[in-house]
């Protein structure tokens, strides 16, 4: 397993070019092309702002203003996370030809799915930055330094879960269908559209704390939305440890099932 993991480093050029290919191929043929990477999160934000300020006004407490910025802190990383999982779960089937016909390390496929979605996440950041400059010109530079740390932990967490799902989906195709519904549920069980401390009464604190993505969302919000120092780092550390374990577990399972992929895909 660790041998294979080391091998992966050798394939970084391939991963890099496959991610580039994914990005290029995604918007090939559309008029706006790469701009969709900026426009998509913006549109998503418009939709959510519309829902929570016009359709369901007063559902969010007045202290989380500007609400659009608050939403954005959680939605951008969530989009990266959820589309990574959806794509990764399907990645081995979609890339079946490669696994069957080319000598190809299969784990590259889910990894590429996660990384290309991460690139989309990055493309959405300038909009977040514009929001920050507009709404929070006083943001402290030291706090923003935490941002890449949270991104790194989220990357590790997403990779681990993606490898796990990708390997299992080959054997249980149902996962693909269940996953989108589970992700919707997960989204609402995460403090993205509401702040952690104002969670609806029915969602207990314990559930939110047990949800790893809560801590990512809260971390982003603390860094970018709330004033004051980043106080969530203890939780982040715990999630980091959990992510390392999850990644090892995911990779271990993937490695164990590796030989079955060429036959089952």
């Amino acid at each position: 397993m660790f041998h294979n993991l080391r091998q992966l480093v050798r394939y970084r050029a391939l991963i890099q070019s496959l991610v580039t290919r994914e990005l290029k191929a995604r918007y090939r043929g559309s008029v706006l092309g790469f701009f969709w990477s900026f426009i998509n999160p913006l549109l998503l934000l418009v939709v959510y702002s519309f829902v929570f300020t016009v359709v369901l006004p007063g559902t969010h407490p007045p202290e989380i203003e500007p609400y659009a910025l608050f939403l954005f802190c959680g939605i951008l990383p969530w989009t990266w996370f959820s589309s990574s999982l959806t794509e990764a779960a399907n990645s081995l089937m979609a890339g079946g030809n490669l696994i069957k016909k080319v000598l190809f390390p299969a784990e590259i496929l889910p990894i590429v799915a996660v990384l290309s979605n991460m690139m989309h996440f990055f493309f959405g950041l300038p909009i977040l930055l514009a929001f920050l400059i507009w709404f929070r010109p006083t943001i402290s530079f030291v706090e923003v330094l935490w941002f890449p740390v949270v991104v790194a932990v989220q990357l590790l967490f997403t990779l681990g879960l993606s490898l796990l799902l990708a390997a299992l989906t080959v054997h249980f195709r149902d996962i693909k269908d269940i996953l989108s519904n589970l992700l919707t549920l997960w989204f609402f069980a995460t403090p993205i559209i509401y702040p952690m401390h104002l969670a609806p009464g029915t969602i207990s604190k314990a559930v939110l704390n047990a949800n790893p993505f809560s801590h990512f969302a809260v971390s982003y919000q603390e860094i970018l939305f709330y004033e004051g120092p980043f106080g969530h780092w203890k939780w982040l550390l715990a999630i980091f440890v959990a992510s390392v374990l999850l990644f090892l577990l995911g990779y271990f399972l993937f490695d164990r099932l590796r030989d079955s992929f060429a036959e089952e895909v």
Binding site: R21, K24, A25, R28, G29, N97, L98, K101, V102, L103
Partner: peptide, 15 residues
């Protein structure tokens, strides 16, 4: 090793 098993197996149609 280079294997000519299926030619162009890794091609992406859009690019």
């Amino acid at each position: 090793i280079s294997a000519l098993i299926e030619l162009g197996a890794g091609f992406h149609p859009e690019i």
